[in-house]
Amino acid sequence: MHPTKALGSDSMFVVFFRSYCHIVEDSITAAVLDSLNNDGRNGEIVDEEQIVDNLIDATTKTWNAQLVRALFNPNIVVAILRIRLLQTQDVMEKHLCRCKIDILPTLTNLKRKKIVVKTQCGFCHVYEEDISHAMLTCSSNYSLWQKFLPMLQNFQSSLTFIDTVRMVMMQGSEAKLTMFSILCWSLWYRRNQLQMGNNLIQHVQAAKHALSICKTFNDVQITTTKDLLKVSKWQAPPDGYLKINVNGTIFANLRKAGVGIVLWDMSGRIVIAASKNEDEVDEAAIIESIAILRGLQLCLPLGIPNFVIKCDCLNVVHELQSTEESFASAGNLINEPKNLMRRFQQVRVQHTTG
């Protein structure tokens, strides 16, 4: 290897190790042996519960699906996500029950307990924040109900929250009641972001966040055990197609990210392979979307008309296959590869399990 090649994360060239390895050889050997003998734990006792806790979304108390997919083999991801914690529907239904019996810590409830003095709504700055105002009648919520549940856009302000729930149950379907509970949860999430973190987010953004959580949960639920037990092996693309495998990786400790792309022909021969450093990102779906974008950008000038893209992030695959508006956190970034795909004759995006 050329002495000035392979500049690593330690900013040292090969020539450094060739010339000065004897100085650090003992220290490096001891560190490697310690890592191997202690299963990479550097002699420390690892809190296994803390490791699992890091995989659970602090807001919803459910699995962080994107993080699980980024860390584990796809063959066991579905099994992990099927382990019951507190399911997404449970979280939002329990929130709806707390709303109905008015035990949420709204500002009016906190005032009764003499915890706060001011009860003015943090969004409209006009009315007191009770449960009906926070969930329904605040002027900042009107466009949300109009967009996602039009049957409530003309609700009467005289109705209590529980009366509104009864109206939805009587006039709507089970799906609308589910949507109602999701939107109420999203409004309370938005309210907490403002009250506790002084972070003002748009109500539609909060609703899409909640819908994305539910969509991820439902995607996992409909995945069959048969899919889980499939043997992972490379599959040739259809006749007349090439195949692109893409993958993104996040190095959180180095504050870096990167993507890799491999283009195959129908015989399994590698046509071209490439990798690229990317700016730091904090979500698996974002780096996987970037990887697909780089794969499309690589193929465009080569004049390849038909190909299959394989990606191991199921959320991104579903978003690219869908013709509907994206609710994912990486929604804006997903639009770029979607637009680029239209410049090819045929592009198939598929999920890879290995």
Results as ranks from 00 to 15, higher is better:
T62Y: 02
T62F: 00
T62S: 00
N64Y: 04
A65W: 00
A65G: 11
A65S: 13
Q66N: 14
Q66T: 14
L67T: 13
L67N: 11
L67M: 13
V68I: 14
R69M: 13
R69D: 03
R69Q: 12
A70K: 01
A70I: 03
A70L: 04
A70D: 02
F72W: 05
N73A: 13
N73T: 10
N75Y: 10
I76K: 15
I76Y: 15
V78N: 05
A79E: 15
I80K: 10
I80F: 09
L81Y: 01
I83N: 05
I83F: 08
R84E: 03
R84G: 02
R84K: 11
L85M: 06
L85R: 02
L85G: 04
Q87W: 04
D90T: 06
D90N: 10
V91Q: 03
M92W: 07
H95I: 08
H95F: 11
H95Y: 09
H95A: 09
H95R: 08
L96E: 07
L96K: 10
C97R: 08
R98W: 03
K100H: 10
I101F: 07
I101N: 09
L104R: 06
L104E: 05
L104H: 06
P105H: 05
P105G: 01
T106L: 07
T106Y: 05
T106E: 05
